[in-house]
Amino acid sequence: MSDVTRAEVCVAACAEVWRDAGEVIASPMGLVPAIAARLAKLTFAPGLLLCDGDADYFTDPTGAAAHLEAHIPYRQLFDQVWHGSRHVMMGASQLDKFGNQNISAIGADFARPKAQLIGVRGAPGNTVNHPTSYWIANHSPKVFVEKVDVVSGIGYDRARAAGRAARFHHLHRVVTNLAVFDFATPDQRMRLRSLHPGITVDEVVAATGFVLAGTDNPAVTLEPDAEALRLIREVLDPKETREREVPSAGKS
C-alpha cells in the first residue's frame, strides 16, 4: 500500500492543471490549489507567476530565495485577465454539467436569497476571458447540481450562446476530493477523467447530482512522484494544512 494521502493526490492533480500553461498568472483559490500552484512552479511549470495575496509576485515559491519579479495591482490584474494571460482555479458552491458555477447566492429568489455568498466576483470575466479550472474539496450532490441558482462563472452551454465574443472560454479541469474531470465530450459536458486511488465509479456517481459522462473506463489519478511528495511534505506544506481541506481517515 502506498502511504500517499488523498490530500497529496489532490495537490498533484491540481498542479497538473497548470502543466503547459506557459508564462501566465496562476491564481489558486483554496489551500490545496495554493500548494499545487507552488508545486507546479517549482517543478514542471516554472513560467507561472504567483501572487503573494496582494499585488506582489515573487520568484521562488518556497520563499527561501524569493525576489520580487512583478507588481500587478488590481487594475493591471483585470488587464491581464482580459488579455487572457491567466489560468484561475476557483471554487464553487454549485457546479452543473456544463460547468456553470455559482458563488453568488443560494435560492430561487435573488431578491431575497436563502444564503448570500460572496457575489459573482470576477467569475463572469474570468471564465469568458481565460482558462478556468475548479477545485471542489467536498464532492457532493449539493455542489454538483442539475442547475445552479446564479450562473457566475459560465459553462459551455452559456459560452456557446454568447457566440464569438466568448471564444476564449475554456474550462480545463475540475478536481475534487474524489476524482478529476474534463469537458471533452462532443457537447462539452463534464466527463470523469480519472478516479483518485481507492475511489469507485459508484461513489462518484452517487455524489454527483447529474448524469456524468465517461464512467465506463476512467483512468486512475496519478500519485505525486517522490520529488513532488518531498516538496509537498517538507517544503511547501510541512504543517499539513492540506489535511484541513481533504482529511485522511482517522485524522480530522
Binding site: 483585470f78 482580459w82 470575466g125 471564465t127 450562473v151 462563472g153 459560465i154 459560452a159 454568447a162
Partner: peptide
C-alpha cells in the same frame, strides 16, 4: 463582475455612456 464594475466607473470618469467588455456575457 468586478472587472465590469471598474469599467462602469471608468466610463463615468471618461464621461462615456458605456464601455464594452466580455465580462458578464453568458452569466
Amino acid at each position: 463582475d468586478e472587472g465590469a464594475l471598474q469599467w462602469g466607473l471608468y466610463a463615468a470618469a471618461l464621461r462615456l455612456p458605456f464601455l464594452p467588455t466580455r465580462a458578464g456575457l453568458g452569466s
